[in-house]
Lab assay of single mutants.
Amino acid sequence: TGEEYIAVGDFTAQQVGDLTFKKGEILLVIEKKPDGWWIAKDAKGNEGLVPRTYLEPYS
């Protein structure tokens, strides 16, 4: 389980392990790392690192 967040901007993977997403996408945050990069999963089940500055809590 995780917390749902909504993307407030588009993000394109910079390196292997990053997750590309579009503004408005709902992501499930699995782990919040202290460096500001969180592990998240998208609706298709893809998992990767995302920058927390692009996310806001979804309710």
Rank of each mutant, 00 (worst) to 15 (best):
R52E: 12
L49I: 10
Q14S: 11
E56Y: 10
V50I: 05
A13R: 07
R52D: 09
Q14Y: 10
Y5T: 01
K33F: 10
T12E: 12
T53K: 12
T1N: 14
R52K: 13
D42W: 01
L27C: 02
G9C: 10
G45T: 02
G17Q: 07
G9W: 15
I26T: 05
T20L: 03
E47C: 14
K22I: 06
G48M: 02
L28T: 11
D18S: 14
I30F: 12
V8G: 04
Q15V: 09
V8H: 06
I39A: 06
W38G: 01
E56C: 13
G36A: 05
T20Q: 07
K44Y: 13
D18G: 15
S59A: 12
P51W: 14
F21T: 02
V29I: 15
G48D: 00
E4P: 15
T53Q: 11
W38N: 01
L19E: 00
K41R: 15
V16M: 12
A43S: 14
D10F: 04
E56W: 13
K33L: 11
A7N: 00
D42Y: 01
D10N: 11
V29E: 00
E31P: 01
E31R: 07
G48N: 01
D35T: 10
L19I: 06
Q15W: 09
W38V: 03
L27M: 06
D42P: 02
G45V: 01
V29C: 03
Y54H: 14
D35V: 04
I26H: 07
E31Y: 13
N46F: 09
D10Q: 05
G45P: 00
T1K: 12
P34S: 12
V8Q: 07
Q15L: 10
E4A: 15
E4M: 13
G24H: 06
Y58T: 07
L27D: 00
I6M: 10
I26N: 02
S59D: 12
G45E: 05
K33A: 09
L27S: 00
L49W: 11
G36Q: 06
A40R: 00
V16Q: 11
G24S: 04
Y5E: 00
T53W: 14
E31F: 14
G45D: 06
G2Q: 11
N46Y: 08
W37T: 08
P34G: 13
T53G: 09
V29Y: 01
G9A: 15
A43W: 13
P51N: 13
I26M: 07
D18E: 15
D10T: 08
P57W: 07
E3A: 11
V29D: 00
Y5G: 01
T20C: 05
T53R: 12
E31G: 08
L27K: 00
K32C: 03
T12S: 13
R52A: 15
A43V: 12
A43T: 12
T53D: 14
F11K: 03
G36S: 05
K22E: 06
K44T: 10
G36F: 05
R52L: 09
Q14H: 10
L28F: 13
L19R: 01
E3N: 10
E31S: 13
R52F: 14
A7M: 03
A7E: 00
K33N: 11
V8M: 15
D42E: 02
V16Y: 10
D42L: 03
K44Q: 15
K32M: 08
F11T: 02
G2V: 12
P51S: 09
D35P: 02
Q15F: 09
V50K: 00
W38P: 00
V29R: 01
D42V: 02
T12M: 11
A7G: 05
T12R: 08
T1L: 12
G48Q: 01
T12Y: 15
N46D: 08
E56R: 15
L55M: 06
V16E: 11
A43I: 11
E25C: 07
L55D: 00
A13V: 03
D42M: 02
K44N: 11
V50Y: 01
I6W: 06
L19P: 01
L27W: 01
G36I: 06
I6F: 06
A40F: 02
V29W: 01
L49V: 13
N46T: 10
F21M: 05
V16W: 11
E31T: 12
W38C: 03
F11Q: 03
